[in-house]
């Protein structure tokens, strides 16, 4: 049976290159290799507040039919995500939230820790990860001519050690465990 997932990022342009392959890999782990994973592009959300507003106001009518929604914002501004999940559950939407510590780019960087000048603990607590750590990393190891400036290839490399990613980013491990509890995704006997 087909399984459809909607990813709601804060920034569809760049985060999509990280989130889509990540979620595809995660649902494959949960034995849904044929799952259809879509990154939300319309309405075009820009930032945490806009994304949260869209989830409550705009998306239920348009995407209620999808099996699972994943809201994956940066952790710095994320608040009361459990409350949001409950609010959507009341509307018949299966929403799970996973805030990236400190920002989504950390999930890509998890597979390239040996190339960073900072130890991983500092990366995970960095106040300006996107600008101060990720941007110079991408400039050095990405390819400005490629789609997403090379994010896809770098994320592919990260996902080659998927277990290592979950170990480095416990919020992803927690998300996977929570998804495993869903009836549609639970491990079959």
């Amino acid at each position: 049976m087909s399984f459809s997932v909607l990813i709601i990022p804060e920034d569809p342009t760049h985060n999509g290159y990280i989130l889509k392959p990540l979620v595809e890999r995660m649902v494959r782990e949960l034995r849904k290799p044929q799952a259809r994973v879509t990154v939300l592009t319309n309405p075009k959300v820009n930032g945490y507040d806009a994304a949260r507003r869209a989830i409550v106001e705009d998306l239920p009518l348009r995407y209620k039919h999808l099996d699972l929604w994943l809201f994956m914002p940066d952790a710095d501004r994320a608040r009361n995500l459990a409350g949001l999940e409950k609010e959507l559950e009341a509307q018949g939407v299966c929403l799970r939230c996973c805030a990236a510590k400190p920002e989504v780019e950390a999930w890509l960087l998890a597979g390239h820790r040996e190339k960073l000048q900072l130890d991983w603990k500092h990366v995970r607590e960095h106040a300006s990860l996107k600008e101060k750590v990720f941007a110079p990393f991408l400039e050095k190891h990405g390819d400005a001519r490629a789609a997403g400036a090379g994010r896809s290839a770098l994320m592919d490399a990260t996902l080659r050690n998927y277990d290592g990613l979950l170990t480095a980013c416990d919020e992803l491990k927690e998300l996977q465990d929570r998804l495993r509890q869903l009836p549609a995704l639970g491990v079959q006997p």
Binding site: D143, R145, A146, A147, G148, G150, S152, A153
Partner: peptide, 13 residues
């Protein structure tokens, strides 16, 4: 090879 990889990334998207 590098140019090809970058070019191909757009077609894959």
């Amino acid at each position: 090879e590098k140019a090809k990889s970058a070019y191909l990334s757009w077609l894959k998207e």
